[in-house]
Design a protein around this nucleic acid. Structure first.
Length: 918
RNA sequence: GGGCGUAUAGCUCAGCGGUAGAGCACUGCCUUCACACGGCAGGGGUCGCAGGUUCAAACCCUGCUGCGCCCACCA
């Protein structure tokens, strides 16, 4: 063939240039755009909005890959498909990043800049870096409709947040209260329960004596946080505890401060078996004690300020860091002989998800969403199957959390976020001793816009609540706020409820549950029909990826390659010369192939490399076919049954089968199964067998035969490209455009996804034994280490006349593929040549190998084969000798085993016969 | 303290009631005119351990062990 035909098709697939080119062309041609209204059925996935500060890690790559597969698959199947992109403002995370940045570059704190200026800096920062996430998704091939990209703090989303806040307040589902909440002393803000991570740490437990007033006795309490005693307002015992009956209702003297506090009886707080059976009660600094305080109407004394330093309530201990206060309290107790003991103790402590600081329970005025009335319909929706959660095992987790849900603290003492639409009247709000507005005692006015004047005193001096909303408040509205709500847009009508919500299981509560609750409440219907929760991606050892461990794999490094010096340590060991560029398609295929349900993914770069080889295989197979296709255009008649050979019918049948398998698997979200079926078919059925079988016809003189073969090849290749496109969009689009007759302005990504037609079991059944005989000859050849170019003679014996006829008809397949100079067909019983032999089902193959065969090795091989057959036979006979098996197993199973015994016996006899001839 | 997941070939993983599979790695032959990121052939597993159910168990049940995760206020 001339070099001309190969021009533009390099020998090895080079992803870099192809990927960049196609993404641009798709984008420019508007291939990703959804229509607001359409006669086509809608399909919509909302991309979980990445953090504006975030880099794109491998978890995002998994999300993008799986969603892009679903989206491209549906787009090709004729759905009006919207994949909605967006970015999350990520309140606390972003504020911290920019705060650090300002500190580093200008040496200033956010307080130095002031709120307005600091927030302006964050917006600048967002303008500068917010587009990075989009670019990174482009490298992955994600077909998101960027023309609709949204931000959680853009005007539309902010309008939705405002509307939801005001309406929840009007409905009595949102209220302000002074409650004990989780507080981060480092971020100076309240946190929801979900934003606190728990960690087991080694600490101590101390026993402290509290003197009973007017008696020469003590009550000994146990505590892991002795400094909180400064805020104690009671000591509790169990009501039935005989040891302390007489002390209930008496008074003890709080050591160090000398305050008098009551001894109360409480069966909920106190376990008489634990420790001394006496518990100190600090309602302002412990969640259990807080509940106890409410039950007994105890005073609540806050001893820590927003930085967790002791305040004036701590008396002589005021002005200390909480841990300094602990040391000093312990030393003073020791000095007064009130410290009984210190013992090592394992305790679970709460850490701020963002800063890692130990969280402090703190009493403060916050906004809460009353959650139970929202949770109930969200539970029912899943119970009734209106939303399906996959893998199903997560349903139980969802129910458990939803049924035990607590009111949601939605206010944050941050500057970056949606400022709460509530105002306070300067005239009617009480003042603190320092003269500031006492917001704890204030009555908020919730309104869509700043009120003109105070409804009570008619005064016009109103200040807005300084707090902002939890980031998850706005993302909880995402499925409808991105579609235009509260406006009644055509998009909302077309795409809500969305089709699938695909995300990691780590944000089931943070995000999915809240979208369910808010979506049902405000839209009157579930936000998505199916929730598909994918696994977490870990490194090759199964460890969570983290910067600290140095095992973070950057998807862009995998796609484009990276110098060794830029790689994290674990990868530097693996790739001392630097990491090669695997390409986006290879990464996507790996992620899809590993995305089996209900299992975490360990990213194996060896597998990425394997799928890179797959893209290269597809590339070269196509290159070869294009060489022989030239400008050939299939006419209708070539694919008619009458012109087809057995091999043609066989590959066409297999093509229908894999089409069915791919569609079925994707319908069940079985990405791995679809990927595996397509891989096996493309490489091992199409490339290894059919293309090899087709070569003689392509190179032969029979032009009609050649044309039919070309028509089949082009048909199957076109199918393969369409089937694989959702998984590996770049290379398939590139190859497809080189097929003869594909218009310049067409796109594979907008073409039709194949639907399976009828299979041809007759052709498959006839082809199988032919393949088996070729395998048999190759086996003898391989075992004898014969070079492929050395032509050999083969004798095939079988009593199956139909098979002999088939082999006679198809010697054109057998001879070239097995490298034969001559194929002889005989009935069994004709004296076989002394030779290498292979025994199949009803067939024996002999290859005369005078002088080429190591007889000892051949004998050893046959003996091993016989041993294997005999082992199988023994197991089967044991089974069939068992009367209850024969009696109870289904007849077809027994029949199958009997047939197998017969076949194995025949094979054994044949093998022994062959052994005797050597 | 509850709950969930997982344990299959050296590695990464499918299979989840009727003869143990894939990819990579490994061994041998082959630089044959699509592809050495290749072709052909081959070796390798008592399916974590112990019981049970069943004619039959990698697959279902129970217990144990290892690994991982989630939830929970035990001072």
């Amino acid at each position: 063939m001339s070099e001309d035909h190969q021009e533009g098709l390099p020998k090895a697939y080079e992803p870099a240039e192809v990927e960049a080119r196609w993404y641009r062309r798709w984008e420019e041609a508007g291939c990703f755009r959804a229509e607001a209204t359409s006669s086509k059925p809608p399909y919509c996935i909302i991309l979980p909005p990445p953090n504006v500060t975030g880099s794109l890690h491998i978890g995002h790559a998994l999300t993008a890959t799986l969603e892009d597969i679903l989206v491209r698959w549906h787009r090709m199947r004729g759905f009006n498909t919207l994949w909605q992109p967006g970015v999350d403002h990520a309140g606390i995370a972003t504020q911290m990043v920019v705060e650090r940045e300002v500190k580093r570059t200008e040496g200033k704190s956010r307080h130095d800049l002031g709120r307005d200026e600091f927030v302006r800096r964050i917006w600048d920062w967002k303008e500068r870096y917010g587009a990075r996430i989009q670019e990174k998704h482009e490298h992955l091939g994600a077909s998101l409709d960027w023309s609709r990209s949204r931000f959680t703090m853009d005007p539309g989303s902010s309008a939705a947040v405002l509307e939801v806040f005001v309406r929840l307040h009007e409905e009595g589902l949102l209220y302000r209260a002074n409650r004990l909440i989780n507080w981060c002393p480092d971020c100076h803000t309240a946190l929801s329960d979900l934003e606190v991570d728990h960690e087991e740490r080694q600490g101590s437990i101390w026993e402290i004596r509290y003197p009973v007033k007017g008696q020469d006795r003590f009550l000994t309490v146990a505590t892991t946080r002795p400094e909180t005693m400064l805020g104690d307002t009671a000591v509790a015992v169990h009501p039935d505890d005989a040891r302390y009956q007489d002390l209930i209702g008496k008074t003890v003297i709080l050591p160090l401060l000398g305050r008098e506090i009551p001894v109360i009886a409480d069966a909920t707080l106190v376990d008489p078996e634990f420790g001394t059976g006496v518990v100190k009660v600090t309602p302002a600094h412990d969640f259990n004690d807080y509940q106890t305080g409410l039950r007994h109407r105890l005073p609540m004394i806050s001893i820590l300020d927003e930085a967790a330093r002791t305040n004036e309530a701590a008396g002589p201990y005021a002005g200390l860091d909480r841990f300094e206060a602990r040391t000093k309290v312990l030393a003073d107790l020791e000095a007064r002989g009130l410290l009984v003991s210190e013992k090592p103790h394992t305790l679970s402590i709460g850490l701020c998800q963002r800063s890692g600081t130990i969280v402090e329970p703190r009493l403060s005025p916050q906004w809460f969403v009353k959650i139970e009335p929202l949770a109930r319909p969200a539970i029912e929706a899943v119970e009734q199957g209106r939303t399906k959660i996959l893998p199903e095992t997560w349903t139980a987790t969802y129910f458990h959390w939803m049924r035990n849900i607590q009111d949601w603290c939605v206010s944050r003492q941050l500057w970056w976020g949606h400022q709460i639409p509530a105002w306070y009247c300067e005239a009617c709000t009480p003042r603190t001793p320092s003269g500031a507005l006492d917001l704890e005692k204030a009555t908020p006015i919730v309104a869509r816009t700043r009120p003109e004047r105070c409804p009570s005193c008619k005064g016009s001096a109103l200040v807005q609540d300084p707090d902002v909303l939890d980031t998850w408040f706005s993302s909880g509205l995402w499925p409808f706020s991105t579609l235009g709500w509260p406006e009644r847009t055509p998009e909302l009508k077309t795409f809500y409820p969305t089709s699938v919500l695909e995300t990691g299981h780590d944000i089931l509560f943070f995000w999915v549950a809240r979208m369910m609750m808010l979506g049902i409440h405000f839209m009157g219907d579930v936000p998505f029909r199916t929730v598909y929760l994918h696994a977490m991606v870990r490194d090759e050892k199964g460890e969570k990826m983290s910067k600290v461990k140095g095992n973070v794999v950057d998807p862009l490094d995998v796609i484009h390659g990276q110098k060794a010096s830029e790689l994290p340590p674990s990868l530097r060991n693996k790739f001392p010369e630097g990491m090669p560029a695997f390409g986006a398609d290879a990464l996507r295929y790996t992620l899809a192939a590993l995305a089996a349900q209900g299992r975490d993914i360990k990213l194996s770069l060896d597998r990425v490399n394997g799928y890179k080889a797959f893209t290269n295989k597809l590339w070269n197979a196509s290159r070869f076919l294009l060489l022989y296709l030239g400008d050939f255009r299939p006419g209708g008649r070539q694919l008619q049954q009458a012109s087809l050979t057995l091999a043609d019918r066989w590959i066409l049948s297999r093509t229908e089968r894999v089409t069915r398998e791919a569609n079925d698997a994707l319908g069940r979200f079985e990405f791995a199964e679809a990927a595996s079926a397509l891989y096996q078919f493309t490489w091992h059925a199409f490339c290894d067998w059919y293309i090899e079988l087709a070569k003689p016809a392509l190179q032969g003189a029979d032009s009609e035969r050649g044309d039919t073969t070309r028509a089949v090849l082009i048909h199957v290749l076109d199918r393969v490209l369409r089937l694989l496109h959702p998984f590996i969009p770049f290379i398939t689009e590139e190859i497809w455009h080189r097929l003869p007759g594909v218009p310049e302005d067409a796109f594979l990504m907008l073409s039709q996804y194949p639907e399976a037609g009828p299979e041809d079991p007759v052709a498959e059944a006839e082809m199988e034994p032919v393949i088996a005989v070729i395998d048999g000859i190759r086996n003898i050849r391989g075992e004898s280490n014969l070079p492929p170019l050395q032509r050999i003679r083969a004798v095939v014996q079988t009593d199956d006349a139909a098979l002999r006829a088939a082999l006679e008809r198809h010697r054109g397949y057998v001879e070239p593929l097995a490298g034969l100079s001559e194929l002889t067909l005989q009935p069994t019983g004709a004296p076989p040549p002394s030779s290498g032999s292979w025994v199949g089902q009803g067939v024996s193959v002999y290859v005369p190998l005078a002088g080429l065969l190591d007889l000892d090795e051949e004998r050893a091989r046959l003996r091993k084969e016989i041993a294997r057959v005999e082992a199988d036979l023994a197991a089967l006979r044991r089974k069939l000798d068992n009367p209850s098996f024969v009696a109870r197993a289904p007849a077809d199973v027994v029949e199958k085993d009997r047939a197998r015994v017969a076949e194995l016996e025949a094979r054994r006899a044949k093998l022994l016969d062959n052994l005797s001839r050597i």
